[in-house]
Amino acid sequence: MLPAGKGRRAKARRFVMNAGVLKSGDLRQGLLNYVAALGLSIVLHFAVVAVLFYNWKHQPEIAAVDADPYYIGATTVTENPHRAREQLQLQTSEQRREQRLSQIRAERAAAAEAEALRREENERRMVAENEERRKQLAAIQSQLESSPQAEPVQRMDTPASTADIRQGLEGSDEQALMTELAERQAVTDDEKAKAYASQIKREVEQMWSRPPSARNGMEVLLQVHLVPTGEVVDVHLLSSSDNDAFDRSAIQAVRKADRFQVPADSQLFESTFRVFELLFRPEDLRL
């Protein structure tokens, strides 16, 4: 049995608050100049939450209005006592269903809201990081552009300041700097993708319940299609293990995971996560 809806909702809302506190803490560290924007966004989000909650409260009512005439019609027509009983059962179960649905939906919505908030913060941070990087890059660019011109001047001036010398040295090592920069960029993307990939792996593992006919060394290869929100839209079986139950358990694990954390950086998403392969090969079974 699930706890009463109110308690659940309160808990969910608290979770939202906590998430907000956590995020602002993070932000304070790196992004002091975005405080104003952040404030605005939080206000906006609360507004969105409020609107959403308002909507959900109303959903069951709408459903009830829809359902009412239908049931009246059904009960009057019926003559078979069994059918009547079934109908009654259906009706009560329908009401119960609606109640519980609205409960669950509210819980889900709160969770989804928290998730959306978190994602947006994440994206904002990434954007900020990108901005930072772009600025650095621009600074280096301008430095590089200015250095060849400065060089002859420096040579003419006899006692060169230390800053000038350093600038000159960097300038002369221009090519090395370029490659280093490119590599650093690649490494961060690489690391980022790896982090997301291992998160996906963990989530799938959490969902993967192998049938008792599974044996170590069996392999099934799936192709997973995501949309930028991380939602799973398609799962293809690329190669089978020849055990239907085992294949199904792998597909089911991905289906159950439903959505994955994916990079907000659309370029990285497109290149790596829109379509990827999942190889299931158990190594921890007892047989």
Partner: peptide
């Protein structure tokens, strides 16, 4: 750079929970 490194991502899942 990104595309070159991750043209084909393959994640290997070797453990499960067997719930």
């Amino acid at each position: 750079a990104g595309q070159l490194v991750f043209a084909e991502l393959r994640i290997e899942v070797t453990e499960g929970v067997d719930n």
